[in-house]
Every structure is written in structure tokens, then in C-alpha cells.
């Protein structure tokens, strides 16, 4: 399995270092376990074009059979906020079907995940946090993959 994840990530890295869609850029991929990507959102007043959001990807040895762990990472400098969205908690955890075990497929990749998250933000009309955000952020000790999200509002 170890060979599988590193060979595939190596291929993805070569492709990503070539071209990426607008608003998506690679920050670092110093090893094949953790990658940082920056995201900006076009045409949505909730997310000013000057704002950039940082995604952290953590890959297990079983990638791509197993989904990577993808969260938003807050930073002071350069400033990276957690985007306001009814499926994104203040601690950076994202509730998105393709990232959990039920919705994941090994044909997804770093680029397609970035595109999905970028379009989930671009299409958002609600400048708000998920219900129960404060309580979840205070009490959650689980890794994102172990959380059973309730998809309370699939329309968002």
C-alpha cells in the first residue's frame, strides 16, 4: 500500500506543478504525507477576491483507497481565515460528502477536491457557520474521518 500512495501522489504532484485552475495554487508538498494548497473564490461577495484560504491535505498510506483528511488551516501571516460557510466549522473541519468514507472514490484527487471545495464556496449564499458550531468546536476530539456528520441541509 505504501508504494501505491507515494507513486500516485508523485504523479499528482508533477501534474499540479504544471497547471492548476485559476484560484487554486500549491503552497508546499515537502513530503508525500502533507500538502498545503491555497484557494481563492471568484465572484462571491462573501469571499472577497483578496482573501485566500489555506487547505491542508493529510494522506494516509492507503490513499487513494482511503480519502485524504482535508481541513482549512488558519494562519496569522500570511493571513488565512476559515471561510464562512454552513458546512465549515470554525476549527477548519469541512463537512463534504466526497471527503467522508461514504462519499469518497479513489478517482478523486487533490485537484478535483480543491475544485469541489472552491465551487462549494463559490455557490454559497449563506454567510454563516453550521448549526452547533461553537459546541462542536469546543467538544470535538475526533479526526474528521471519524465524525459522523448529519447532512442536515444537502441544498447548501
Amino acid at each position: 500500500m505504501a508504494g501505491m500512495s507515494s507513486k500516485r501522489l508523485q504523479k499528482e504532484l508533477v501534474k499540479i506543478q504544471g497547471t492548476l485552475p485559476p484560484g487554486i495554487s500549491l503552497v508546499s508538498a515537502d513530503n508525500l504525507r502533507e500538502w498545503l494548497m491555497d484557494l481563492s473564490i471568484p465572484d462571491n461577495p462573501i469571499y472577497p477576491p483578496t482573501d485566500t484560504y489555506r487547505l491542508r491535505f493529510l494522506f494516509s498510506q492507503s490513499y487513494p483507497i482511503e480519502a485524504p483528511e482535508v481541513t482549512f488551516l488558519p494562519l496569522q501571516s500570511p493571513e488565512r481565515k476559515i471561510p464562512l460557510h454552513p458546512h465549515i466549522y470554525t476549527n477548519g473541519i469541512i463537512c463534504l460528502d466526497l471527503l467522508d468514507a461514504q462519499g469518497w472514490s479513489p478517482v478523486h484527487n487533490v485537484e478535483s477536491i480543491c475544485i469541489s471545495i472552491q465551487s462549494m464556496l463559490a455557490g454559497n449564499t449563506k454567510a454563516e457557520r453550521p448549526p452547533g458550531d461553537a459546541e462542536f468546536v469546543r467538544s470535538n476530539r475526533s479526526r474528521p474521518r471519524d465524525i459522523n456528520f448529519l447532512y442536515h441541509d444537502p441544498s447548501v
Binding site: K7, R8, E12
Partner: peptide, 14 residues
Amino acid sequence: CGICRVEFEGTCSK
């Protein structure tokens, strides 16, 4: 192959 991203005429990663 959509899983390993290698050409079918190449091998899987193992």
C-alpha cells in the same frame, strides 16, 4: 487507470 493513474499498458503500483 483512475485509481493509480498509470496507463493500462503499464503496471499498477505494486
